[in-house]
Every structure is written in structure tokens, then in C-alpha cells.
Simulated scan of single mutants.
Amino acid sequence: MRNNQPVTQQQRCFDPKLPLVSLTDTKGTLLHVNQAFAEVSGYTEAELLGEPHNIIRHPDMPAAAFEDMWRTLKAGLPWHGLVKNRCKNGDYYWVESYITPVIEPIHPS
């Protein structure tokens, strides 16, 4: 599992009503991010697209959480959990994640 470094002890706060949206394929590659997702993570959209979603994985997150997430999604079920993500500069932010598998292929514009 990816172990992104360095990390800081600085939490990045953002409006909890602000939806952070991303779309990945079944291999975890980022296909789409909204502007809010990019801004909070500290990356540009161009830096994120085509990269593994775990580019924002914080090393404090246990691998078991993501194993459970992928097992649930591969079973065709939605997953919900609290996730600590790492910003590009090493800061962190918490998100309450709602992840839904897409059964039919979609093509982001």
C-alpha cells in the first residue's frame, strides 16, 4: 500500500457542505475530480487525472479500511467511511466518504 510522505500535523479545514467528487476506474485510477476535490487536496486537476487515487492516501489510514472498501465495492455495494487524506504539501483533511460502484461504463466529459 502506498505510503505518501512527508506528512505534517497541520489539518486543512474546508466547508463540510462542499462536495468533493472523484471518479476512478476499477484499478483505482482517477478519471475525474471536481474543482473542490483538487483545491482541498492541493493538487491541480492535471496532476490528479490518470494517477492512482491513493496519491492522497494518508499513512495513518490502515490498509484494512481500503481492503474493506474494495471488497464491498467489488461486491456491487456502496461503501461509507471516515477517511483521512493527505494533501500535496503533507497536511491532512478528513472526509466522510460515500462511494458507490458504477455498474455501467461511464465516460467523463
Rank of each mutant, 00 (worst) to 15 (best):
P62Q: 05
S22P: 04
L73N: 00
R71A: 15
E45S: 15
R2F: 10
V7P: 03
K84C: 13
M69E: 08
R2Y: 11
S109C: 04
S97E: 13
R2S: 12
D60V: 09
V102L: 15
M1Y: 07
M69H: 00
L82F: 02
Y92D: 02
V40C: 09
R12K: 12
L48E: 05
A64F: 03
P101Y: 03
E96C: 10
G76Y: 06
A36N: 10
F37M: 11
G28S: 08
C87S: 07
W94Q: 06
N89S: 14
G42I: 14
Q5S: 14
G81Q: 00
T26S: 11
D60L: 09
V21N: 05
V102N: 08
F37W: 15
D68R: 10
Q35N: 13
F14N: 03
L23K: 01
R86I: 06
K74E: 10
W70F: 00
L23V: 15
M1C: 12
M69W: 00
T72W: 04
V102R: 07
F37Q: 11
L31Q: 14
T29K: 08
R86E: 02
Y43I: 14
Q9Y: 04
C87F: 06
S109Y: 04
S97D: 13
Q11P: 02
S41T: 15
G81W: 00
K74P: 00
H53I: 10
G90Q: 03
M61W: 01
G76A: 04
T29C: 14
D68G: 02
R2C: 05
D68M: 09
C13L: 12
K17F: 11
T44Y: 14
M69S: 02
Y93F: 15
W79H: 06
H80I: 09
P16G: 08
L31D: 03
L31W: 05
C13I: 11
V95M: 09
Y98K: 11
E51F: 06
R71L: 10
C13V: 13
H80A: 03
A65C: 09
S109H: 10
I106M: 14
K74Q: 10
Q10I: 13
Q9N: 12
G50P: 09
T24K: 01
D15M: 06
T8Q: 10
Y43A: 12
I106N: 02
I56T: 09
C13A: 14
N85V: 04
G76V: 08
R2P: 11
V40S: 08
F14V: 11
I56E: 01
D25Y: 06
G90S: 04
V33Y: 04
F14G: 04
G76K: 00
A64E: 15
D91K: 00
P78Q: 03
K17D: 13
F66A: 01
T26F: 13
Y93K: 03
V33Q: 05
